[in-house]
Simulated assay, not measured.
Amino acid sequence: MKLLDDDAVSERLAGVPEWRREGNEIRRTVAAPDFPTAIRIVDAIAVRAEEINHHPDIDIRWRRLHLALTTHDAGGLTGRDFELAADIDRIAAEHGA
């Protein structure tokens, strides 16, 4: 997978406004209504991640999920990161987060 240059990253970030760039990663925090919902969101993200073979870093803190995406194999950000970011946004919205 091809690395995105800075202009392409900025352009893609416009399509996922909840996400921010930090170095070679994009990050987002999702606030779920409660802990069980947070776990359901993680489960749905895990299913999607397995489907596309691209896995986020997830830190669970009660009802807050801190997510980070990067394409380790490519050494930075690729289209796969933004594809999964959009999927995570959809999953979070479906669960009221």
Rank of each mutant, 00 (worst) to 15 (best):
K2A: 13
K2F: 04
K2M: 10
K2P: 15
L3K: 15
L3Q: 10
L3F: 08
L4A: 05
D6P: 00
D7V: 06
A8V: 00
V9Q: 09
V9I: 15
V9A: 06
S10Y: 01
E11D: 13
R12C: 09
R12V: 01
R12N: 14
R12D: 04
G15D: 14
P17L: 03
P17S: 05
E18Q: 14
W19R: 10
R20D: 03
E22I: 06
N24A: 11
E25V: 02
I26T: 11
I26L: 11
R28E: 06
R28K: 14
R28V: 11
T29W: 02
T29D: 12
A31R: 15
A31M: 10
P33E: 09
P33N: 09
P33A: 10
D34H: 08
D34K: 05
F35Y: 15
F35C: 00
P36A: 05
T37D: 02
A38I: 05
A38F: 03
A38L: 04
I39F: 12
I39L: 15
V42T: 14
V42L: 11
D43F: 04
D43N: 15
A44F: 07
I45D: 06
A46G: 15
A46N: 09
V47G: 06
V47D: 13
R48S: 00
R48F: 02
R48G: 02
A49H: 13
E50I: 00
E51I: 04
I52Y: 02
I52S: 00
I52G: 02
N53V: 08
N53P: 01
P56F: 08
D57H: 01
D57Q: 05
I58E: 12
I58Y: 09
D59N: 10
D59E: 11
I60R: 06
I60E: 04
R61A: 12
R61E: 12
R61Y: 07
W62S: 08
R63N: 15
R63S: 12
L65Q: 10
L65H: 11
L67A: 03
A68H: 05
L69T: 08
T71S: 14
T71G: 08
H72K: 12
H72F: 05
D73F: 03
D73S: 14
A74F: 05
A74W: 06
G76N: 11
G79N: 13
R80K: 15
R80S: 15
R80N: 13
F82K: 04
E83R: 10
L84F: 08
L84V: 07
A86D: 10
A86P: 03
D87T: 04
D87P: 01
I88C: 08
D89T: 02
D89L: 00
D89V: 01
D89P: 01
R90A: 14
I91F: 05
A92R: 12
A93L: 06
A93P: 00
E94W: 02
H95W: 00
H95V: 00
G96K: 12
A97M: 09
